[in-house]
């Protein structure tokens, strides 16, 4: 199982195919902000988003976006608050804020968010 640290140091990029996102590590997702959508309910298979922790990666489906490329522009990002698999979700210091920039060839560029970014937990 890959750790987030390894993914960042080896620059392994997440991928997207239409409305599906593949994160190359296992995690729990607490909140996603995409455009003006603030998603915290991942229980529905029809609206918002749902995610699955697979053996080596995490898979997310955005139900309201056919193709992420059409919605997320050059300066915009998909923002998430995640907790790496195996970490204590109740410890706020484990809550990691990440932004994903949509690039060409199905690649998502991952960026750990610093204070420059405006992202309210």
């Amino acid at each position: 199982m890959r750790k987030l640290e390894e993914v960042i140091s080896k620059k392994i990029n997440p991928l997207y195919y239409g409305n599906r996102v593949l994160l190359p590590f296992m995690c729990d997702i607490l909140k996603i902000v995409i455009e003006k959508d603030i998603i915290t309910d991942f229980s529905s298979s029809k609206k918002g988003a749902e995610y699955y922790k697979r053996e080596t990666y995490t898979e997310i489906y955005f139900h309201d976006y056919d193709d992420l490329e059409d919605y997320v522009t050059k300066y915009e990002t998909i923002k998430m608050i995640i907790v790496e698999a195996g970490q204590d979700v109740f410890d706020f210091s484990n809550h990691i804020k990440i932004a994903f920039h949509v690039k060409e060839k199905h690649i998502l560029e991952m960026e750990l968010l610093n204070d420059n970014y405006l992202f309210i937990e």
Partner: peptide, 10 residues
């Protein structure tokens, strides 16, 4: 700066 402001035309 545009990036830090997440500037977007939306």
């Amino acid at each position: 700066i545009l990036k830090a402001n997440e500037f977007d035309f939306e």
